[in-house]
Design a protein around this nucleic acid. Structure first.
Lengths: 244, 244
DNA sequence: CGGTTGTTTGAGGACGTTCAAGTACTGTGG
DNA sequence: CCACAGTACTTGAACGTCCTCAAACAACCG
């Protein structure tokens, strides 16, 4: 691992309180690698071997299951794909990809797939578990991170249960704007439509129509740019009681 | 807090590694109380004042939002309720009710409502945060607990995104059977239909119909008893790849 | 026994998906 | 630069799922 990599690692929230010597020790047990789109970091059911720290790019957590056996079993008419998939979470630079499985040393509940070329550090699961046991500061940092992540998921689940598809899209746009520092109206969408649809929990077609619907609220989306006429109207529409 | 309460506290996973003296200290900062059905432990948006440990009974985490403003604004026809609600998680004896907000000292994302008369310990948030900082063992225990909880939610979210309502019901029944030690066919449903429906993310009416659908798979539900003819068939139906 | 509450059933409608076709957008080789 | 894929996105129509509203039952409690 180069010195530059060490700096990157340091920048990740989780490691930023670690004394340099400890961080170096940790870094030496791992390695850094570039991963192309569609690379699979790990698959649902596998035992975790590494904790993945994303330096740049984006990685999606994907849940999948076999396509349904059909209630009124109509013979074996195998459809073209055979699996249903849904993106459950998306991680980006500075994030750590699912500590829970690593910490508990239990099989992954989901797969991780690179959706934007990424540089990723692979830290051996064992090193991480040891560090948690031996370094109280790191243990506390982990606690905070997990608590944050829990809240992310909880917010997701809440949205999934009580917002419609179009409302979720609106909420997503609002969250993008919030993250941007630039004042107002125009945001860059970091995801393509397919990914976005899966992440928002709807079909790509429906996403398209949802976008069309939001036009009546002054939102225009074209390619990867979204311009928002009146953010407050959007906020009202998606029932944004989002708490930090 | 009585001695008996102390034992109960000790039984909760989270505290079972704590030295008795420390546990006593913690217990002395808090109190125990019985709460009737419909009691609200805390509301969405509030700052956490206590960590709640459930000794017995059941508590639901409820997300809520104002009812939608309607896209094609058809005047102000206020419906009878005005809020949409969804149960996001259900906790029972031995569980700790949402550590994340307490740990991070941030407003609750959801409300907690008692759905079955409960005995609950209230431990001051401040005591918990101090304990995490001062006691590495407790910090580690917290880490494990949060990791577990993350996985619970992740499983939920996954199910929500790629299972149909009826499939979720089937999965729920399967999970109930798994938890039971008694061999086979009959399970007691711990929730009433309303709560169950909300928890499974559907309307009570739809739950009713889903139950009816499962009859063709050999499941008979009547009142609070469900008898399952062939568990493996159920498992297959709901695409049960559930990993522990 | 009537009132209250909780579950079921039925009909109609909203939301969302699928399949199929059409329309950009991209890069490639001529 | 243009024609040509190939891919992504949009649009349309038909269907399914799930929700709402209203009414019928059922069970419980005074």
């Amino acid at each position: 691992m180069t010195n530059d990599d060490l700096v990157q690692l340091f920048k990740a929230q989780l490691f930023s309180d670690l004394p340099l010597s400890v961080l170096e020790g940790l870094a030496n047990t791992g390695f850094v690698q570039s991963e192309p789109v569609d690379a699979v970091l790990f698959a649902q059911g596998e035992m975790p071997r590494f904790l993945h720290v994303i330096f740049s790019g984006r990685v999606a957590l994907v849940g999948s299951s076999a396509a349904r056996p059909a209630l009124h079993a109509t013979a074996d008419r195998a459809p073209h794909h055979g699996t249903r998939e849904a993106i459950v979470e998306i991680f980006k630079g500075g994030d750590v990809v699912i500590a829970p499985a690593v910490i508990l040393n239990r099989p992954y509940l989901m797969s991780a797939r690179v959706i934007e070329t990424s540089r990723i550090a692979f830290l051996p699961a064992e090193s991480i578990r040891n560090l948690i046991n031996e370094n109280p500061g790191f243990s506390r940092a982990t606690t905070s991170m997990l608590a944050e992540h829990w809240r992310l998921l909880a917010r997701q689940l809440k949205g999934q249960k009580l917002r419609s598809g179009t409302e979720r899209l609106a909420a997503y746009l609002v969250s993008l704007v919030a993250r941007q520092t630039d004042v107002g109206a125009s945001v860059e969408l970091p995801l393509d439509r397919q990914t976005m649809a899966s992440w928002l929990g709807m079909s790509p077609e429906h996403l398209s129509r949802s976008i069309a619907q939001l036009k009546s609220l002054g939102v225009v989306v074209s390619g990867r740019r979204a311009s928002i006429g009146d953010i407050d109207r959007l906020r009202a529409f998606c029932l944004d009681d989002d708490l930090r």
